[in-house]
Write a protein that binds this DNA or RNA. Sequence first.
DNA 1: GCAATAGTGAACCAAAAGGTTCACTATTGC
DNA 2: GCAATAGTGAACCTTTTGGTTCACTATTGC
Lengths: 109, 109
Amino acid sequence: MTANLDSVFLAIADPTRRAILSRLAEGPARISDMAAPFPMSLTGFCKHVRMLERAGLVRRTRRGRENTLELSAKPLRDAAGWVSGYERFWASRLDRLEAFFAVKKENLQ
Amino acid sequence: MTANLDSVFLAIADPTRRAILSRLAEGPARISDMAAPFPMSLTGFCKHVRMLERAGLVRRTRRGRENTLELSAKPLRDAAGWVSGYERFWASRLDRLEAFFAVKKENLQ
DNA sequence: GCAATAGTGAACCAAAAGGTTCACTATTGC
DNA sequence: GCAATAGTGAACCTTTTGGTTCACTATTGC
């Protein structure tokens, strides 16, 4: 059901795949069109697409020989949920205090 | 300066490392103490710690032979920032509409 | 009908991830 | 002083990533 966090975080740990998602945020696109700007073979590009699919981050629609991808952002909601569990550690007064001492320590070295 | 998104997302793409961060959210802890519950060698565990360090997600303090880790959540802020750029895709009316059709399509298959 | 286009699958490769064991260095408790 | 403890480094292994090329299928434009 919910694609797991491992595969989602792994999928977005690569700049090519983040670029694909970023492109799809503007709307659906064909695989070949999306692949064109990337300095790699179409086969290599398709492997990235498959990793995004496995993570549930894109949906594919085949019409004839053309494969159109569209964003499927729901797994990112789970990812955001996990990350936001740590929000207090970068947002709190405590953290700013911590940051202050971190800087002080750097200056002393 | 800002540890890059690749290494941060890669770091949190592993359940062991997410568990380490989760433990550290409760407070600093020694490496050996933290390693104990995990079904792997201390050496293996230390490799995970090093990946978290490389991503800037933990800080290490050595006192004698003991290494204490503490959470350093700032890189997660960048990660959260990236992910939240997609929030509208799971939060919007458009997305719920999209979800509606997705379910409809499933039912037709 | 046929050539061009869209994409996949298989085989291969190098590098990294995720783990192991063993030997080793420091440090500490007693 | 010495044994136990904390952790690292090196060597090794298997699986996965990220890429390639080549051959192939299916579709489409003309």
